[in-house]
């Protein structure tokens, strides 16, 4: 019963508001004089009064983000401390050491190696992994048989759902010591020890990038396929009339249509360029390939976290994310200048 009256009251409120609005429109400024000082503020207040309930929908997520994303940003202060695991971030017995952790990190004889390993791994990964899904999407989109397209799509997406542990496990069973490739190469008269790709520093990047693309090229193509499905078929018809072949139409119809999506994806991936996933790199690290496989984020993990050097680990992580932010800003700026589209 109470509920019903509540609803009725709400309904009344709603009607009242509508009537008020109508009056306001009718006699112009008569009623507005009162809140002429801050009309926007009044409007905002009215809106808040009516809709504050919806804040409850986003509150849990917001609180979560503040605790698990923003508090760690506050935790960056640890980079300037001599921090022992278990201490509070800022307390009475905090020892501030200024830039000492950064100095330790930058003066590490291997610092440049870690930096270039990260950079090269990510740049090569980007150079292969960025165009591949676009090409696949364009090819898939040009298929005439809807059934073949659908079937291939399902197949291409599937590896995305294989876990990293399993993925690297498979890689090792196929390319690792005593793996399939080694056995086959021994049979064909190669070295008796096999190729031992997982112990070779020069094989790490190709293996990492190849397996990453194997897993994700189909998945990354989704976004382009979705954009391509929005292309107006009459454009294709018109181009056909002008005698454009299917191949030609890829460049003059399809590509221009998905260009905004491509640019958006490019900004996003350049902004995350230096994050190439330490989880997988850690799985693929062996004593033999450390020379190329130790990157900044694995250094944070092994030295900072497992080694208990929290201060230095935080400093190294901060260095990595600052580079990312700089790259993002550059990418956004460039695309604004060159292609006149940007994220902000």
């Amino acid at each position: 019963m109470q509920n019903v009256t509540g609803e009725a009251a709400l309904q009344n409120e709603e009607t009242q508001r509508l009537i008020d609005e109508a009056y306001e429109q009718m006699d112009g400024n008569a009623d507005r004089k009162k809140d002429k000082k801050h009309p926007k503020w009044e409007q905002w207040k009215a809106n808040f009064k009516r809709h504050w309930w919806i804040l409850l929908f986003i509150l849990p997520a917001l609180i979560y983000v503040i605790i698990f994303c923003y508090l760690p940003m506050y935790g960056i202060l640890v980079a300037f401390q001599d921090y022992m695991p278990g201490d509070s971030v800022v307390g009475p017995d905090t020892i501030w050491v200024g830039w000492q952790n950064f100095e330790t990190f930058f003066s590490n004889p291997n610092f440049l190696d870690y930096f270039f390993n990260t950079f090269l791994l990510c740049v090569f990964g980007f150079l292969v992994g960025f165009p591949l899904p676009i090409i696949v999407a364009l090819l898939l989109n040009s298929l005439r048989s809807k059934k073949a397209k659908k079937g291939l799509q399902i197949l291409y997406y599937a590896p995305h759902f294989i876990s990293l542990v399993v993925m690297v496990g498979m890689l090792k069973l196929i390319f690792g010591s005593d793996g399939l490739l080694d056995q086959l190469s021994i049979k064909l008269g190669g070295d008796v020890n096999g190729l031992q790709l997982f112990l070779k520093p020069e094989a790490f990047r190709p293996l990492f990038i190849f397996s990453g693309n194997w897993q994700d090229f189909g998945w990354s193509a989704i976004i382009y396929l979705a954009a391509l499905s929005g292309v107006d078929p009459s454009l294709h018809e018109a181009a056909k009339m002008d005698g454009a072949s299917r191949f030609r139409r890829i460049f003059s119809v399809d590509l221009p249509a998905i260009l905004p999506t491509i640019i958006m994806m490019m900004i996003l991936s350049v902004g995350n360029l230096m994050n190439c996933g330490y989880e997988k790199v850690l799985l693929m690290q062996t004593g033999g390939n450390l020379e190329t496989s130790e990157i900044l984020s694995t250094y944070v993990y092994t030295f900072g976290l497992m080694g208990g050097q929290y201060g230095v680990g935080t400093a190294a992580g901060l260095f990595n994310s600052v580079i990312n932010v700089i790259l993002l800003v550059i990418a956004n700026f460039t695309s604004k200048k060159v292609a006149h589209s940007s994220m902000w």
């Binding site: 698990f68 940003m73 506050y74 935790g75 960056i76 278990g86 944070v300 992580g317």
Partner: peptide, 16 residues
């Protein structure tokens, strides 16, 4: 938060 974060170590400190 999509482009900047505290990083792994501060995250663990907070969770701890």
């Amino acid at each position: 938060t999509m482009f900047f974060g505290g990083g792994l170590v501060p995250y663990i400190i907070i969770c701890r």
